[in-house]
Design a protein around this nucleic acid. Structure first.
Lengths: 337, 337
DNA sequence: ACGTGAGATGTGTACGTTCACATTTCTCGT
DNA sequence: ACGAGAAATGTGAACGTACACATCTCACGT
């Protein structure tokens, strides 16, 4: 006939056992000065002894500070967003913040609103959005979200802060590399239509092709996966009206190369392929992939720094850019003939 | 001279505007029955109009329910843990729970304790541990954590629930496949020493080799990365006293293959390579990788189901196993001669 | 017309903490 | 030895919600 659950000790229990008032315990918890060392130690001993853990809900209620940053991610377990997320978690932790992550199961408007509402109910103090779908921004505007917000991978110039890798520049570098090798018929395998990143890379590609006065092949819309890249590669084999492909990420590039090889084409002898992201495996693909490197971890860290800056009230620059880097390996070569 | 921050509307504000008591608003929020439809609608209208959001801290304080599940992940952005994490988040969300994720920056005892303490302060109702380092279990025991706990990828049989892919069985399948092809000199490239997964795969490998009465090459300890696989491959080229390698994950397998090719060896003609995990890119590697598939998403989903079951008080089975599957592709073949 | 009971709504209180302010205790210099 | 001021500690209230219980309202059968 034991009581089913014993109530967890609270600040008053600790105070009683230490022979002080609850306020003194609170001071110890918050590292207040003007506490006698002996008293402080006595309180700490009791805390350790009874295994007291401050109730964050009560604390948040009275201070109206949650020390939590909300992160909205896309539904996929891609390397880039994941790496950024880890960096965000680490940077936030170091600053004494915690992370509440939620991901988008679907990218329809309702789901986005639901997830944002969820984060706001959590009373997050700031928001990092790594879900670079265009629609997210509409939802944010609609909900009149008032906490500081940083978006990643956006090329938008909106009323919130953003941090982006200059995807357009990266795409231009990749495209220019192919052009400089002598390619004149270049196909672009893009990401999904509503991803801002995909749009930016496509824009960069089109601009570069345009400036070089080359014929424009209509970009193909992909879904970021190697499987899709493979299927596209099989299709492309039927036309052969190109000498190079710029894929919007490394996985699709891998699928393309696989399909080309299956079709009897050699990369880079018969066709050059460039990827994007420089995931850690890209250097070990066969052939090692020429790609555009982005520092996802750096982006994550800096996004937290920006957010914390805004939380502290600094009126810093609103938009930062991180520059990507072209990594030339062995999947690109001059066209035959 | 505006007031700097307007207080967010609370339940009493809503009540006043709707001309009802705060308790009635509370009833609407909690979908209580015995609310007149017209009243309910009036309250909902006010809520929407003023943008009222219930304060979770206050709610948690009084109900002592946070509806939060804590997740402890390893420090790395690997495909497997990440995929499981996504599945966990989704499953939890569907059950009305939220996720508080924290990752291990380092795997020393202090860091682990710090992270666990952190989650407990958040008053998580349950814990999912995807950080399969051995030391985590010591910390959990030491902290006398009382909330329901599910660990992933563990082969331990402890006092908490666990859900694991039978890594030993998977490793045996991979090894047996090589043996059945006729290989007698097989090297194992393992994961880091303190990872339970790595240990289990090594155990499976050693058992199978032992049962087949083959000479045992001492396993090589790796770090899961393709880069490391490449370096090991370069080293191995100097000996050539093996005809097959079983790598503990696909990335290391990729690096190995790269190194072998650089050294003039053909996979699978000169040496066979098997990976583990079946990440989505494995089918598109060159050659397409023979590997062991694990359903990471399934694991994530089931871990949440187990946890919720325990939270509801079901006394279900304590340990579930998920079986992996051997996927034979083109990186394995009979040994030459 | 009136009591009855169910349905609808209202009131008091507790959750565990921090903040503002009040009070006590110590440490000096004289 | 004493008072002033600083240091240390204590008291009352508030944060926003849900629960237990109390009260009000209304339809209905007699």
């Amino acid at each position: 006939m034991e009581p089913d659950k014993v109530r967890a000790p609270n600040i008053r229990d600790v105070a009683r056992l230490a022979g002080v008032s609850y306020q003194t315990v609170s001071r110890v918890l918050n590292n207040s000065e003007s506490i006698k060392d002996t008293t402080k130690q006595r309180v700490l001993d009791v805390i350790a002894q009874v295994g007291y853990r401050p109730n964050q809900a009560a604390r948040a209620l009275v201070t109206s500070r949650t020390r939590t940053i909300g992160v909205l991610t896309s539904q996929t377990a891609h390397y880039g967003p994941t790496t950024s997320l880890h960096a965000i978690e680490e940077a936030a932790r170091e600053a004494g913040y915690l992370i509440s992550t939620t991901s988008l199961a679907t990218s329809d408007h309702e789901a986005i609103v639901d997830r944002l509402e969820h984060l706001m109910r959590q009373a997050v103090e700031g928001l990092v959005v790594i879900a670079p779908q265009v629609r997210v921004f509409d939802a944010i505007r609609e909900l009149e979200i008032s906490v500081p917000l940083v978006t990643l991978d956006s090329t938008r110039r909106d009323d919130h802060r953003s941090l982006s890798v200059d995807q357009i520049a990266g795409a231009r570098m990749a495209t220019r590399h192919l052009i400089e090798l002598g390619h004149r018929e270049i196909v672009h395998l893009s990401g999904p239509q509503d991803w801002i990143e995909a749009e930016a890379r496509m824009t960069g590609f089109l601009r570069e092709v345009d400036e070089a006065d080359l014929a424009t092949h209509p970009p193909i819309l992909g879904d970021w996966t190697a499987d899709f890249g493979y299927h596209v590669g099989r299709e492309l084999l039927r036309y052969r009206d190109f000498t190079a492909v710029f894929a919007a990420n490394d996985q699709m590039a891998l699928g393309l190369i696989h399909a080309f090889r299956d079709g009897g084409l050699d990369v880079p002898r018969d066709v050059s392929v460039v990827g994007f992201d420089d995931i850690p495996e890209a250097a070990h693909y066969w052939p090692p992939l020429t790609t555009v490197r982005q520092d996802f971890a750096e982006i994550g860290r800096r996004s937290v720094a920006m957010l914390l800056g805004e939380l502290r009230g600094d009126a810093e620059a609103n938009h930062e850019q991180v520059f990507p880097e072209l990594i030339v390996r062995e999947s690109t070569a001059p066209p035959r003939i």
